[in-house]
């Protein structure tokens, strides 16, 4: 997967995050959106990776990583319990990276420890936030974007 497509995946996740958890949306709408986004990300990975999907096992969990990123982005707009779900979304991303990494380690790939450490640091830091202002939201989103693109 080329770096350009990687960055585009990030933008796609950000764009999809706009539709989640809107005011007065039913759980059905959110659930269907989540499933739909997962499908969309899967199709994106499938066509974006072209033929390297079979030969590069590290792409197996790419749609799930995209979904976790999308969830992280979407929590910044929650009206209630924002900090709690922010931390939980980051933990989900951490989970996918960590255990996906261990599974890939057993098949010969190195674990991306720097990426995992970065996400863990962000999650831990988020627990200390007392008030999430707009600037803080923006800062978090930039940090997630940076972790995705550079690590």
């Amino acid at each position: 997967m080329t770096p350009l497509l990687n960055a585009f995946a990030c933008l796609l996740a950000l764009g999809c995050a706009l539709f989640l958890w809107r005011e007065k949306s039913s759980p059905y709408r959110n659930g269907a959106l989540l499933a739909g986004f997962l499908l969309l990300f899967g199709v994106f990975t499938y066509f974006g990776a072209a033929d390297s999907l079979v030969t590069d096992p590290s792409l197996e969990h790419y749609p799930f990583r995209m979904l976790a990123l999308c969830l992280c982005f979407s929590t910044t707009s929650l009206p209630l319990y924002r900090r709690r779900y922010l931390v939980l979304a980051q933990v989900l991303w951490l989970w996918i990276e960590l255990f996906g990494g261990i599974a890939l380690y057993y098949r010969g790939f190195d674990v991306a420890w720097t990426r995992i450490a970065a996400i863990a640091g962000l999650a831990l830091g988020s627990t200390f936030l007392s008030r999430i202002s707009r600037e803080m939201e923006f800062c978090l989103m930039v940090l997630w974007l940076a972790v995705w693109v550079f690590f």
Binding site: E60, H61, F64, G100, G101, I102, Y105, Y106
Partner: peptide, 26 residues
């Protein structure tokens, strides 16, 4: 969640073609 992740790693950490899946924990 950890328990079921580890159960999934029983499969994901192998070379069996049908058990390929870094996404198996989720």
């Amino acid at each position: 969640l950890w328990v079921h992740t580890v159960v999934s790693l029983d499969f994901a950490a192998t070379f069996v073609p049908e058990w390929r899946g870094a996404f198996f924990p989720v």
